[in-house]
Design a protein around this nucleic acid. Structure first.
Lengths: 201, 201
DNA sequence: CATTTATGATACTATATGGTATCAAACAAT
DNA sequence: ATTGTTTGATACCATATAGTATCATAAATG
């Protein structure tokens, strides 16, 4: 695969529009059915344009897929980075962080994104790693920071994150609709465990 | 797809042997590269036999894949069902449960199994559901039982399970080698949170 | 032994795939 | 307008795919 950026032509207006259309159509198709089950012909039937665009602008099918993962990673950067909780009590703050996080994670588009990167994680581990970096890792870092950065903050942040996220995401991957009452109950209980006093007795 | 079991021929010795050989070769291939990236021809090159076997014994590629998931689900039934912890302290017992569980989950073969079912979870949600049933759900049930079945036992079992499992599995999916020191530290801390007193204050 | 059934090697069908080549039209720059 | 470049439609290539058909051989059954 020749580096597409190295020899990429400067796009004119038409080309830039096609670029976006192809990215959009391919994103939808890959999210829906995964890398292997989607063909270029099919993407182009939806987007318009032709293979010339794909191979000149993205290099090959892998290059197109890679750019799409980059884009989705930016779209799903942890929503927690935008929060500023000030001097709120830990238990309360964790509840807010948890609810903010879960609202984003449970979106069907994010569930499809996670499924997609996990599906290719053997062949393209760096793509799942990018999802992990902007998602779980970033969220955990924000939570750890909120917890004050003590000796257990980092570890507790991971534990809190995984307590509230995992089971709901597994169910979503299987197609079960989210049970928000249970999600909130778990957030509250986890917030109490981590943010309440008397854990580091 | 005609139901293979309905018209399945009674296998003779040769046939039964081929049946196993095909299952073994296909299992390895599917675990390695996923449903879409594996072809029947390739499986048969490894197993011996011919397409006649596959289509007579399994119906089609989906049928073969389904049987393989059943088999792997049986292989990875939660190891916690075999444990009897008697009247041990909760915190200690959770530590043992956690360690027993993680030893199995972190096996490369199980990681590949989880990746494989998640990859097809959109098209074949019932197959991921089977993994979930024999894996997380069963483990959580055993943990809940050990916790005494109180009002919060069920929920705490899910939280404990997800605290110790999630991050390590994510890293394993990305190809990172397991960090056993961190895994054990998380198990111990989670066991203290859930099994120590003063949570339901 | 004769008959029925299961197995196997192989050829085949139809279709799809990623990727390349060709040449014409649209565009940008001078 | 002329020239060089980008875009597009389309044909093409080599290969691969799931699934079927054929016909010969091996095994079980009577």
């Amino acid at each position: 695969m020749t580096d597409p950026a190295a020899q990429a032509p400067r796009l004119n207006v038409r080309g830039a529009a096609r670029h976006e259309q192809i990215l959009d159509a391919a994103t939808q198709a890959f999210l829906d059915r995964g890398f292997d089950a989607v063909s270029l012909d099919e993407i182009l039937r939806v987007s318009g344009g032709s293979k010339t665009n794909v191979y000149k602008q993205f290099g090959d099918k892998n290059g197109l897929f890679t750019q799409i993962v980059h884009r989705l990673a930016a779209e799903f950067l942890s929503p927690l980075t935008a929060l500023d909780l000030g001097q709120i009590a830990q238990e309360t703050g964790l509840g807010i962080l948890g609810r903010t996080l879960m609202r984003q994670l449970m979106q069907p588009r994010h569930i499809a994104f996670q499924r997609m990167v996990m599906a290719v994680s053997r062949r393209m581990p760096h793509l799942m790693a990018e999802w992990y970096r902007v998602g779980p890792k970033t969220s955990q870092a924000v939570i750890a920071d909120f917890l004050g950065g003590g000796p257990n903050a980092q570890r507790d942040a991971v534990l809190f994150h995984d307590m509230i996220v995992t089971d709901a995401v597994n169910h979503a991957l299987m197609g079960d609709p989210p049970d928000w009452a249970e999600i909130e109950a778990r957030i509250d209980r986890a917030a109490r465990m981590i943010g309440g006093k008397a854990i580091d007795a």
